[in-house]
């Protein structure tokens, strides 16, 4: 065991101060130190993408980042995507409308990846959406609903189905 280090990390706008072992991954910090268990671990080797979070606004594997590296940085997780009053983001709403999740385990990573994409490129085509999603594996949905959700937000801008 190595000496613990004090870190301060801002997660979803709130600052958390903890003493952690350097080897603690950011994913485990989020899940087990500050109890934000919405971020999931599906492989712990950087392929499945379930642990993807925004680190200073950029999608990042929290299983390949140590918590100590996030000291002084800003993290956004799935718990931070809805409005403070609980209103779901247009993407979250579109995910429900398009059956973009089944077991929900890959969902945090999917939401984070697409939130970043749609922020940086508000009108991506299907090819761009799919290419960006290659960093996130889903075993349940066959991706169709996830792509449709992103497409809906990209086109509609409001994220409301149909009309």
């Amino acid at each position: 065991m190595t000496v613990k280090q004090a870190i301060a990390v801002t997660v979803n706008g709130k600052q958390y101060q903890r003493e952690v072992e350097p080897r603690l991954t950011l994913a485990d910090f989020l899940r087990h130190e500050i109890n934000l268990t919405g971020t999931h671990l599906g492989c712990e080797h950087g392929v499945c993408g379930a642990c993807t979070i925004l680190l200073n606004g950029l999608s990042t594997r929290s299983c390949l980042t140590f918590a100590v590296q996030a000291h002084g940085q800003e993290v956004t997780t799935i718990e931070g995507l809805a409005e403070p009053d609980g209103t779901l983001s247009p993407l979250q709403q579109a995910m429900a409308e398009n059956h973009a999740l089944q077991c929900g385990f890959c969902t945090p990573g999917m939401l984070i990846t697409l939130t970043e994409l749609l922020r940086d490129d508000p009108n991506p085509d299907d090819a761009k959406i799919r290419e960006t999603l290659t960093g996130n594996l889903c075993r349940c949905t066959g991706y169709s609903g996830i792509v449709a959700a992103a497409r809906q937000v990209a086109k509609g801008g409001r994220g409301i189905a149909g009309d």
Binding site: T77, I78, E79, A82, G86, Q92, A96, H99, L101
Partner: peptide, 21 residues
Amino acid sequence: VKRLEDPALLVGSGQYTDDIK
């Protein structure tokens, strides 16, 4: 019908086994 399961899972408040403390 939209799924009843989704609202919790979309905001990260699902409770998978490893989430239970």
